[in-house]
Amino acid sequence: MGFDLDKWYAQKMQGEVILKYMGDVSSDKITEALEGIESNLNLKNEINKTRKKVYNVFVECIQNLFHHVDVPPVSAHVELVPKFGIIILARDNSFYRISTGNFVRLDKVNIIKDRIDQVNSLSDEEVKMLYREILGNEGITSKGGGGLGMLDIVRKTGNKLEYALYPFDDEYVFFSLDVYIS
Protein backbone atom coordinates (compact mmCIF):
# COMPACT_ATOMS: atom_id res chain seq x y z
CA MET A 1 0.00 0.00 0.00
CA GLY A 2 1.50 3.31 -1.09
CA PHE A 3 1.08 6.79 0.28
CA ASP A 4 -2.49 7.68 1.27
CA LEU A 5 -3.11 11.41 0.80
CA ASP A 6 -6.55 11.38 2.46
CA LYS A 7 -5.14 9.77 5.54
CA TRP A 8 -2.28 12.25 5.68
CA TYR A 9 -4.70 15.15 5.28
CA ALA A 10 -7.06 13.86 7.99
CA GLN A 11 -4.14 13.59 10.36
CA LYS A 12 -3.02 17.15 9.71
CA MET A 13 -6.55 18.45 10.22
CA GLN A 14 -6.39 17.60 13.91
CA GLY A 15 -6.64 20.44 16.38
CA GLU A 16 -8.43 23.72 15.80
CA VAL A 17 -7.98 24.44 12.10
CA ILE A 18 -7.59 28.13 11.30
CA LEU A 19 -6.92 27.78 7.61
CA LYS A 20 -6.71 24.95 5.13
CA TYR A 21 -5.93 25.12 1.46
CA MET A 22 -5.36 22.50 -1.21
CA GLY A 23 -4.76 23.45 -4.83
CA ASP A 24 -2.81 25.84 -6.98
CA VAL A 25 -0.44 27.95 -4.88
CA SER A 26 -0.62 31.09 -7.03
CA SER A 27 0.16 34.63 -5.98
CA ASP A 28 -3.57 35.47 -5.74
CA LYS A 29 -4.33 32.39 -3.68
CA ILE A 30 -1.55 33.33 -1.29
CA THR A 31 -3.07 36.80 -0.85
CA GLU A 32 -6.47 35.21 -0.13
CA ALA A 33 -4.98 32.81 2.40
CA LEU A 34 -3.23 35.65 4.20
CA GLU A 35 -6.45 37.65 4.36
CA GLY A 36 -8.15 34.57 5.78
CA ILE A 37 -5.62 34.29 8.56
CA GLU A 38 -5.75 37.96 9.36
CA SER A 39 -9.49 37.88 9.84
CA ASN A 40 -9.29 34.90 12.18
CA LEU A 41 -10.60 36.05 15.51
CA ASN A 42 -8.54 33.78 17.72
CA LEU A 43 -5.38 34.96 16.09
CA LYS A 44 -6.54 38.56 16.36
CA ASN A 45 -6.78 38.07 20.10
CA GLU A 46 -3.26 36.77 20.38
CA ILE A 47 -0.56 39.06 21.67
CA ASN A 48 1.11 41.03 18.91
CA LYS A 49 4.34 39.10 19.10
CA THR A 50 2.72 35.69 18.56
CA ARG A 51 0.32 36.93 15.90
CA LYS A 52 3.11 38.45 13.88
CA LYS A 53 5.28 35.39 14.23
CA VAL A 54 2.50 33.05 13.06
CA TYR A 55 1.78 35.33 10.14
CA ASN A 56 5.39 35.72 9.16
CA VAL A 57 6.20 32.01 9.35
CA PHE A 58 3.03 31.19 7.42
CA VAL A 59 4.12 33.58 4.65
CA GLU A 60 7.49 31.87 4.47
CA CYS A 61 5.91 28.39 4.35
CA ILE A 62 3.37 29.18 1.65
CA GLN A 63 5.90 31.09 -0.47
CA ASN A 64 8.25 28.17 -0.11
CA LEU A 65 5.54 26.13 -1.84
CA PHE A 66 5.07 28.87 -4.44
CA HIS A 67 8.75 28.86 -5.36
CA HIS A 68 9.42 25.15 -5.31
CA VAL A 69 6.40 22.94 -6.01
CA ASP A 70 5.89 20.84 -9.12
CA VAL A 71 2.91 19.78 -11.17
CA PRO A 72 1.51 16.74 -9.29
CA PRO A 73 1.47 13.23 -10.77
CA VAL A 74 -1.72 12.27 -12.63
CA SER A 75 -2.14 9.18 -10.47
CA ALA A 76 -2.39 11.33 -7.33
CA HIS A 77 -5.97 12.22 -8.35
CA VAL A 78 -5.61 15.81 -7.31
CA GLU A 79 -6.12 19.01 -9.28
CA LEU A 80 -3.51 19.07 -12.06
CA VAL A 81 -2.37 22.62 -11.54
CA PRO A 82 1.13 24.03 -12.10
CA LYS A 83 1.84 24.64 -8.44
CA PHE A 84 -0.02 22.04 -6.42
CA GLY A 85 0.37 22.33 -2.69
CA ILE A 86 -1.45 21.86 0.59
CA ILE A 87 -1.17 24.11 3.61
CA ILE A 88 -2.92 23.87 6.96
CA LEU A 89 -2.62 26.24 9.90
CA ALA A 90 -3.97 24.73 13.10
CA ARG A 91 -3.79 25.37 16.77
CA ASP A 92 -2.92 22.41 18.96
CA ASN A 93 -3.22 23.37 22.63
CA SER A 94 -0.47 25.84 23.36
CA PHE A 95 1.19 25.96 19.96
CA TYR A 96 0.40 26.73 16.36
CA ARG A 97 1.26 24.22 13.67
CA ILE A 98 1.74 24.89 9.98
CA SER A 99 1.68 21.73 7.88
CA THR A 100 2.51 21.74 4.22
CA GLY A 101 2.39 18.91 1.70
CA ASN A 102 3.38 18.65 -1.92
CA PHE A 103 4.59 16.18 -4.51
CA VAL A 104 8.21 16.49 -5.53
CA ARG A 105 10.16 14.80 -8.27
CA LEU A 106 12.59 12.14 -7.11
CA ASP A 107 15.61 14.08 -8.31
CA LYS A 108 14.86 16.88 -5.83
CA VAL A 109 14.53 14.66 -2.78
CA ASN A 110 18.17 14.71 -1.76
CA ILE A 111 18.39 18.48 -2.06
CA ILE A 112 15.41 18.94 0.25
CA LYS A 113 16.62 16.32 2.71
CA ASP A 114 20.17 17.69 2.88
CA ARG A 115 18.95 21.24 3.28
CA ILE A 116 16.58 20.46 6.16
CA ASP A 117 18.97 18.09 7.92
CA GLN A 118 21.66 20.74 7.76
CA VAL A 119 19.38 23.45 9.17
CA ASN A 120 18.14 21.09 11.90
CA SER A 121 21.68 20.21 12.94
CA LEU A 122 22.55 23.81 13.84
CA SER A 123 22.32 25.51 17.22
CA ASP A 124 20.32 28.75 17.54
CA GLU A 125 23.51 30.77 17.36
CA GLU A 126 24.72 28.86 14.29
CA VAL A 127 21.38 29.42 12.56
CA LYS A 128 21.71 33.16 13.16
CA MET A 129 25.30 33.23 11.90
CA LEU A 130 24.53 31.22 8.77
CA TYR A 131 21.52 33.43 8.06
CA ARG A 132 23.70 36.53 8.22
CA GLU A 133 26.35 34.94 6.08
CA ILE A 134 23.91 34.00 3.31
CA LEU A 135 22.11 37.34 3.54
CA GLY A 136 25.37 39.24 3.22
CA ASN A 137 27.15 37.17 0.63
CA GLU A 138 24.86 35.48 -1.84
CA GLY A 139 22.60 36.81 -4.53
CA ILE A 140 18.98 35.83 -5.06
CA THR A 141 18.63 32.17 -6.07
CA SER A 142 17.17 31.32 -9.45
CA LYS A 143 13.80 30.79 -7.72
CA GLY A 144 13.97 34.23 -6.14
CA GLY A 145 13.65 32.71 -2.72
CA GLY A 146 16.97 33.94 -1.45
CA GLY A 147 17.89 30.53 -0.03
CA LEU A 148 16.95 31.77 3.42
CA GLY A 149 13.43 30.39 3.82
CA MET A 150 14.06 27.28 5.89
CA LEU A 151 16.67 29.04 8.02
CA ASP A 152 14.28 31.88 8.69
CA ILE A 153 11.54 29.48 9.79
CA VAL A 154 13.84 27.69 12.22
CA ARG A 155 15.22 30.95 13.52
CA LYS A 156 11.81 32.52 14.12
CA THR A 157 10.19 29.46 15.67
CA GLY A 158 13.21 28.20 17.60
CA ASN A 159 12.01 24.69 16.73
CA LYS A 160 13.39 22.01 14.43
CA LEU A 161 11.62 21.28 11.15
CA GLU A 162 9.69 18.01 11.23
CA TYR A 163 9.41 16.41 7.84
CA ALA A 164 8.70 13.16 6.06
CA LEU A 165 9.25 12.01 2.48
CA TYR A 166 6.70 9.38 1.50
CA PRO A 167 7.48 7.33 -1.63
CA PHE A 168 4.61 7.76 -4.10
CA ASP A 169 5.58 6.20 -7.42
CA ASP A 170 8.64 5.80 -9.66
CA GLU A 171 8.85 9.53 -10.27
CA TYR A 172 7.39 11.27 -7.24
CA VAL A 173 7.69 11.53 -3.49
CA PHE A 174 5.24 13.30 -1.18
CA PHE A 175 6.97 15.88 0.99
CA SER A 176 5.33 16.63 4.31
CA LEU A 177 6.55 19.43 6.57
CA ASP A 178 5.39 20.45 10.05
CA VAL A 179 6.44 23.73 11.61
CA TYR A 180 5.58 24.45 15.23
CA ILE A 181 5.30 27.89 16.75
CA SER A 182 5.16 27.82 20.53
Binding site: K52, V59, E60, I140
Partner: peptide, 12 residues
Protein backbone atom coordinates in the same frame (compact mmCIF):
# COMPACT_ATOMS: atom_id res chain seq x y z
CA UNK B 1 5.83 45.03 10.47
CA UNK B 2 7.37 42.01 8.85
CA UNK B 3 9.04 40.99 5.63
CA UNK B 4 9.73 37.76 3.79
CA UNK B 5 13.17 36.37 3.09
CA UNK B 6 13.23 37.44 -0.54
CA UNK B 7 12.57 41.05 0.55
CA UNK B 8 15.40 40.77 3.06
CA UNK B 9 17.90 40.60 0.19
CA UNK B 10 16.37 43.61 -1.53
CA UNK B 11 16.37 45.65 1.66
CA UNK B 12 20.05 44.83 2.00
Amino acid sequence: EYFNTSSSKCIL
